[in-house]
Design a protein around this nucleic acid. Sequence first.
DNA 1: GCCAACGTTGGC
DNA 2: GCCAACGTTGGC
Length: 156
Amino acid sequence: MTARKRYWLMKSEPDAFSIDDLERVGTEPWNGVRNYQARNFMRDGMRVGDGVLFYHSNTKVPGIVGIARVASHAYPDDTQFEPRSHYHDPKATREQPRWYLVDVAFERKLARTIPLEEIRQHADALGEGFPLTARGSRLSVFPVTAAQWKLLLSLE
DNA sequence: GCCAACGTTGGC
DNA sequence: GCCAACGTTGGC
């Protein structure tokens, strides 16, 4: 029984971790997510092989820059246990982890960046509540429908 | 660098 | 359970 592939969008600040970094390392544990909604999507929704739109945030031209895929099931984010880590969470324990992540594997870079500015022009087609075009949304991991995936990549 | 919007925390 | 204060996100 093979489940249908799902699609996601994941944001990263290129100064911290860019699509080029992912290309170089191949696979990366997506650590540092400290938002419950984003965590739940990774922990409860993602499956190996799912498609990921890689988005650069907080940069000169924010937008979708590449495609990756989910490369592991969710498991605890080790950085929550490390006192030295920027992502340390004193309330998390090995027995009761609070934060989970998945491994993300590089697939390809887009031929060009699809800028947020351009994505906004398709806000109606993407639908109300799509986090990239919804006002004020800061969600860094969220699901993308097959139709949204197709539309966004058609802009490449 | 600014700052609006948002999520989380903790006092009550 | 409310909500003010605070810290963070992320476009501009």
